[in-house]
Write a protein that binds this DNA or RNA. Sequence first.
DNA 1: TTGAAAGCGCTAACAG
DNA 2: CTGTTAGCGCTTTCAA
Lengths: 338, 338
Amino acid sequence: MSKNLEDIARLAGVSRSTVSRVINGHPHVSELTRRRVMEVVKREGFFPNPAARTLVTQRTRVLGFITPQALPDVFADPYFPALIQGISSTANQYDYALMLWLGEGTEEEERFYHRIRQTGLIDGVVVASVVDDDPLIAHFVEDRFPFVLIGPPPREGLNSIDIDNRHAARVAVEHLIHLGYQRIGMITGWLKMPSARARLDGYRDALRMAGRSASDSRIAEGNFLEPSGYMGMKMLLHQDVDAVFCASDTMAVGAMRALHEERLRVPDDVALVGFDDLPISAALSPPLTTIRQPIRRLGSVATEALINLLDGALATPYHVLLPTELVIRGSCGALLKR
Amino acid sequence: MSKNLEDIARLAGVSRSTVSRVINGHPHVSELTRRRVMEVVKREGFFPNPAARTLVTQRTRVLGFITPQALPDVFADPYFPALIQGISSTANQYDYALMLWLGEGTEEEERFYHRIRQTGLIDGVVVASVVDDDPLIAHFVEDRFPFVLIGPPPREGLNSIDIDNRHAARVAVEHLIHLGYQRIGMITGWLKMPSARARLDGYRDALRMAGRSASDSRIAEGNFLEPSGYMGMKMLLHQDVDAVFCASDTMAVGAMRALHEERLRVPDDVALVGFDDLPISAALSPPLTTIRQPIRRLGSVATEALINLLDGALATPYHVLLPTELVIRGSCGALLKR
DNA sequence: TTGAAAGCGCTAACAG
DNA sequence: CTGTTAGCGCTTTCAA
């Protein structure tokens, strides 16, 4: 049904190879033939069969995006859409298509990996949201399959990109310190994830640099989700905190719920800082002070890095940390005069 | 580097065709050879080159998912992740891979469509979040390219699936009516989207069936997003409403913000019902009464339909409306004794 | 039940 | 500058 190179060649009165050359923009084609061929190509709405092309070039111009963890559980929020938007738009910009694999948890990583590889048809992958020592990574390394990581801390031989979680967390906590809070607690993310640990480190950094001891009794372990924020806050209230840094806005919402339930006010009784800057965060009452991350950008930069890697133009090892921004709203109150 | 059929054939002492038969599970292969071949295949970790296979079969076992609108703007929320999870997991279940295209708004639909088609490598697509008479659809129809729609109202010759927006909205508003509210307003979604209009219709249905006139002055046009909920509520307050049905939870959050600002209480001064059941909705104060939609399921069912379509096993025209669920929480209060 | 051989549509090396 | 030709790795008749 659909025409092929041969048909176009015949229609244009040239050979198959000439049409191929024209289509691929090779030099050494007379301006006249080029024009004649292009005309037929346009008229017939012809485009080369990608499978055939792939068969010989070994390139598909398709990228993959993989998240082994079932994302919507971990990042119930705009993280995933924003990331994927960044990846998608950059891929398109460089004329790549995008394939997607979401882990489901129900399936062993081993099978997951096989599904990805057997599908073939991808030149390289962006991998996000891995837990530590994800076996997936080991496989990619072993198979020498091109990939770029989003999220994990820089490591030997891996190309990766992330936001500066540790620094961002430090900034958040320093904000509380500057405002005069004395007993600052933290509700952490899911500590199996590097980002969660980095934020915890940042919290400790801030306290240490302010000459305070970071008592572990003021640290509640959460998992990024709302209920864990609620429970974490309940727990921290026994520790008499006057401010809490939450490793996600979602947990901050949970913390607020706990506070409301106890008839405590934000920020008067307990101040709150979140992390993410969700769309709703500005609409909470009080509006949440939080850390904004350039998630979309994260996806874009990772994708660009991958494409460069495929072109042999990436200076490896490649490690980038994107800066974040403290967004000050009402949940921390003004300078305390204590 | 990677082995091919020929290599495996040699290793197993059979011909290329026999290996192909074994791999594709054809009958008429002796149990003995089958076993011998499979052993070599396993040992060598062999899998057939998908491009070569596609070249001859004209099938890729790859599905596409397309959303022409830049989703994160329209559905700032879990809609997108949930939908894509449903699609992805069902595709995987049937041993299909998934490709993704997100519209960017910056690009004309014409080019968008070409990008998709030229990439080739997909057997069919699931299309979500189209506005009315999206030119994309016309193209697919014209090219006889297999697709299933998520979201639009049933239409001649198109296979589509959706939740029953109209009925769901009616249920939501009837809930308010039963509770005794008298002046029920609505903040609509982006009326260019069929789902937004269907919800508006449902609102009118409920009022009409209760023998009330649906005064348009109590309808505020929004766009699904938080700020439009805020503004819509501000406007409706002039209309002296005692309850408001919001076409999205996100707008309900905005509405709450407006109410707080005016020092009005929910539900005592104004009752609120949302639509979506976001994770945070249960955590609002008061917790939001809302409509829960089976978004993940929507993706799954659409994908299954597409796969059946590809297998020539779909009874067309195919139109399905998935049921929703009213989730009653605190934002509507108890039965009023008026 | 198995093998030989013909293509699927394209790129690229080689001649001319 | 252009055409001829040999594959890329697989499926699928057709014979045996």
